[in-house]
């Protein structure tokens, strides 16, 4: 599904440069649910951004679903993001003047589907996250958990191969966090590959595999026994 080899990334900070990723090797199989952990500055978000094609590595190989991802033009990166990847952010990143349904339909717009098809698919995914009745509401009229569920529906709408989540529960209270995690686990059960960045141990424990980063290198990569979030709900 995903294969990374000797990935390096540094950022220029004034005169000096900060070496953030110092040779990452990682491979993820279809159907896995991986937590990338690490303290702030460990490079976990940078890694996720490179996987998400939101950022480019300095060197190293990255193969996604058999496609080598390198030297992409902006246009091509946009197409790949749209086709392969679904994003879930800590701060939801919904477009505030669009209602729930329109937010979910947006990736489909960029896929070039017609309006009727978009509405249909968006409604289907909203139903999946249990927000059918909220389709006409603007983000500001939704609770944090609801917003994240809209964001998940949006990430799922384009039927991506890989779901990337950056601290998906970071802005939520414990109860809502568990609800969202239960939902993400359910998606994984249905076969979606999921990669998430978190710094919360209990959230990481709800994944099937934990990759720990420190100072730009992987210090631990182990499979864990998944804790089901549904037991807390």
């Amino acid at each position: 599904m995903l294969k990374i080899n000797a990935l390096h990334k540094s950022y220029a900070i004034g005169e000096s440069s900060l070496h953030v990723l110092k040779g990452i090797d990682l491979s993820v199989e279809t159907g896995e649910m991986v937590a990338i952990m690490g303290s702030s500055g460990s490079g976990k978000s940078t890694l996720l951004n490179i996987i998400g094609m939101l950022d480019v590595a300095d060197s190293g190989d990255y193969i996604l679903d058999g496609l080598p991802i390198e030297a992409l033009t902006e246009k091509k990166a946009a197409v790949y993001r749209n086709k392969f990847l679904g994003f879930i952010f800590q701060s939801f990143n919904l477009i505030n003047y669009k209602n729930a349904l329109e937010n979910v339909a947006l990736p489909l717009y960029y896929q070039g589907l017609n309006r009727k098809k978009r509405q249909e698919l968006a409604l289907f995914h909203l139903e999946k996250v249990g927000l059918t009745n909220w389709s006409g509401h603007l983000p500001k009229e939704l609770s944090g958990g609801q917003k994240q569920r809209v964001a998940i529906a949006r990430a799922l709408a384009a039927n991506p191969k890989l779901l990337l989540a950056d601290e998906p529960t970071g802005a939520l209270d414990t109860k809502t966090s568990h609800e969202i995690m239960a939902f993400i686990q359910q998606l994984n059960d249905e076969g979606k590959t999921i990669l998430m960045v978190t710094h919360e141990e209990d959230i990481a424990g709800m994944c099937k595999r934990i990759v720990r980063l420190r100072d730009g290198v992987i210090i631990e990569d182990k499979k864990v026994n998944q804790v089901r979030a549904s037991q807390y709900v």
Partner: peptide, 16 residues
């Protein structure tokens, strides 16, 4: 800016 970032993450091409 943020909206544009979101759109791009969702697959908007620079041209669009």
């Amino acid at each position: 800016t943020k909206e544009i970032g979101i759109r791009k993450a969702l697959g908007a091409s620079p041209k669009s």
